[in-house]
Amino acid sequence: MVESKQQWKAWLYLAPAIVLLLVFTVWPIINTVGMAFMEGYSGLTKAGGEATFKIGLGNFIHVVGHPDFQQAMKNTILLCLFTVPLSTILALLIAVALNAIKPLRKALQTIFFLPYVTNSIAIGMVFAAMFNVIGSIGTRRPMIISYGVVNDLIRAFGGNWINWINAGSEYWANMVVMVIYIVWNALPFKILVLLGGLQSINKQYYDAAKVDSTPRWRVLTRITVPLLSPMIAYVVITGFIGGFKEYTSIVGIFGENMGPAHDAGRLNTMVGLIYDSLEMDNQGGASAAALILFGIILIVTLINLQVSKKRVHY
């Protein structure tokens, strides 16, 4: 403990950070909670001096009952359920493989890490180009100029081309593209964390496993995964939190429409919905939606922690 006479110095050094945090983080959070309970509140009405709102749960009832919210909820949860396990398992396998090889490890590590330092909108546009079909779809005699790289591949193997993201595309096709894109985007960070974890596992456990004639698959499931479980738990929890905040990835592929041309907003997520509400000058609704999202993330994280208490060792 610092001597009490010295404490003012400590506070002085902390002051800049504390002031900024108070103004730009703490106050907005408090304000959000406040606004969520003000029905019909809007920044504009306040500026006009008229306080037409009343206190209550109206915002929450309105948001939860709204079909847009239900759609966004469904999209967000589906994306989380598919992308988090998929990216975690893939990252684990890649990290284990990277850890097992000696030549080219550094080069491959760099390649796998590249998406992390690339702008996600830019990546999204590349992905969109890969899945984009150019031409007139849905007309009586469709004129296709380009099917996109992915469809070219499917056609090369004798399959039928799929309308992934263009007007008239189906919901599942959109979701497949989103899942592939989000998983690919999430891999680098997870590989990095898991590889770090792998390298800190004492090599002697693997020697012991060899002495015990352990087959490879059992080494992975009975030794590597349990010893890596704290890292895996970290990756899963942050993955779910990131998943519930998914937004830019949709913008990257579908643009601000948040869906294919014929059905804008079909792929909207919770965060997208909050932005939409703000744009429509519905701060009360946006705040309520933000609080709901916060509650969901809190519950999911608590469940995650509870599960990891039982499954994570040490």
Partner: peptide
């Protein structure tokens, strides 16, 4: 793996996430 030896390491290398029973059972399960 194929030599059929038992080895006791200097710092034992017991699997930290397994109980004593699981540790002793492990070679048999393989």
């Amino acid at each position: 793996e194929k030599r059929g030896i038992g080895l006791v390491f200097q710092n034992y290398a017991l699997y930290p996430h397994m109980t004593v029973k699981q540790n002793i059972l492990f070679p048999l399960q393989n």
